[in-house]
Simulated assay, not measured.
Amino acid sequence: MLTLRTSPASPFGRKVKIAACELDLLDRIEIVAADTTDPKDTLRAQNPLGKIPALVLEDGSTLFDSRVIAEYLDHLAGGGLIPPGEARFAQLRLQALADGICDAALLQVYEGRFRTPEMRNAAWVENQAGKVARALATLEAAPPAWSGKPRIGEIALACALGYLDLRFDGTWRAAHPKLVAWLDDFAARVPSFETTRFKG
Rank of each mutant, 00 (worst) to 15 (best):
R189D: 02
L136T: 09
D185F: 02
Q128Y: 13
W172M: 00
R113V: 09
Q128N: 15
P191D: 12
G153M: 08
N121H: 14
A141C: 03
R134F: 03
G170V: 05
G200R: 08
G148M: 08
L179D: 02
T195S: 15
H176K: 02
A142K: 07
V132Y: 01
L166P: 07
T171C: 10
R134Q: 13
A129C: 03
R113A: 14
L157E: 11
G148P: 00
R113G: 10
G148C: 06
R189V: 02
S192N: 09
A158C: 11
K178W: 01
R197Y: 10
A158R: 02
T116A: 15
L139D: 05
V125C: 13
P177Y: 02
E118A: 13
T171S: 15
A145M: 07
E111R: 04
L166R: 14
F198H: 14
K149D: 02
P150Y: 00
L139N: 01
A174W: 13
Y163D: 10
A137G: 08
R151N: 09
P117S: 12
R173A: 12
W146H: 10
R115I: 10
L161G: 00
A181L: 07
A145W: 04
W172C: 03
P117C: 08
V180G: 01
D169N: 15
A156T: 10
A187Q: 14
E194P: 11
G130H: 09
P143R: 02
G112Y: 11
L139Q: 01
P144A: 03
A142N: 08
A141Q: 05
N121L: 14
Y110N: 10
R120E: 05
Y163F: 15
E194A: 15
K178Y: 04
F198A: 11
G148F: 00
R113I: 08
E194M: 10
V132D: 01
L179R: 02
E154L: 01
W172T: 00
A188Y: 04
W172H: 00
G130N: 11
A141N: 10
F193P: 02
V180M: 07
A181V: 00
A123I: 12
A122Y: 01
R115E: 06
R151T: 12
E118S: 07
C159R: 06
C159W: 11
E194T: 15
F114I: 08
L166H: 12
F193E: 07
E118I: 09
A141G: 13
F193W: 14
W146V: 00
A187W: 06
P150D: 02
W124C: 06
W182Y: 01
L164S: 04
G153Y: 00
T195D: 13
D185V: 09
G148Y: 03
A133D: 12
A135E: 08
K131H: 09
L166Q: 10
A123R: 13
F168K: 09
A156G: 04
A158K: 10
P117K: 06
V125N: 09
T116R: 14
E118R: 06
V180N: 03
G153S: 06
L157H: 08
W182E: 00
F193T: 10
V190R: 12
W124V: 05
N127C: 14
N121Y: 13
T196N: 14
